[in-house]
Amino acid sequence: MFNYIIKRFFQSLITLMVVITIVFALLRLMPEEGYFGEGYEKLDEQQREAILTQMGLRDPLHKQLLDFYKQLLRGDLGKSIIYRPKVDISIILNDKIPYSLRFGLSAMALSLLIGLPLGILMALNHRGFWDKLGTAYIVFINAVPAAIYYLFIQVYVTGIFKIPMLYSESNPLSWILPTISMSLGSTASYAMWMRRYMLDEMNKDYVKLAKAKGLSGPRIMLSHVLRNAFVPMVQYLPSAILYTIAGSIYIESLYSIPGMGGLLVTAIQRQDNTLVQALVLIYSSIGIFGLFLGDILMALLDPRIKLSKKAGAR
């Protein structure tokens, strides 16, 4: 087990380094005006060269890459150039991440709390009323563009319940709708996958054996089916939790929540090269780290996963 974790960790590390290098290389291909900020047009050729040289961008590439790694190891993501000139990127993120996390995590808790039981109910009630109702919900969420029901909720529900339309820090009532809206999609997908994994397990031979040995239906569900159906779900949970940091572009702009959503888009539009670089790095390391945690959770729950040692069947 320990060997497996170590091995998986170094694999993730290598992946991360490859990503960093690629991001670094791509950013060097971008137009250079992204490094100058306001007043780019007023600078003449020599001033521009001076600024670029001062930023280290005229050094040989391998030195630049090395410097970049050193900077990252110190935890320094660099300074924003255009978005908020000369401000540390880590400060910009510090201001925004808490909002996204707060809404993301509570939306996620809500959708797990509703989605998983809904999926289980649908599987137990296979082809029955609840299954059909749940399927209708899942199809609706997947078929209708999210923007439509987000807007619908914002416009009508705020009107009916007299809840403020926009987010305000001091009024917790205004936090409800963004959270609910954000959870609708993931509720549908948790329910869908849970139902599917449950049905997969329910049709397996070992359930027949458990039945033949005289276990009652509820007991088979609890101690055999449910546990086994959770295993594939668990793999995606760490990624899902971590990705809440990224926030939701649409919801955050709809309710004017000052979170992470849309930051990457803005940074790219305004060609704030260092900010883009930092954000892409953060998102990709979140992805890699999430998968790493998911794999470890899987290995803890599923004894068949032991890549480090060949399982000896006799």
Partner: peptide, 24 residues
């Protein structure tokens, strides 16, 4: 049936590869 299954009549299945719960 719970009074019968296992206690009175038990069964050995055809497919030993899948008849056991892989996670227990």
């Amino acid at each position: 049936w719970l009074k019968i299954r296992g206690k009175e009549i038990a069964m050995v299945f055809q497919e030993p590869m899948t008849a056991l719960n892989p996670l227990k």
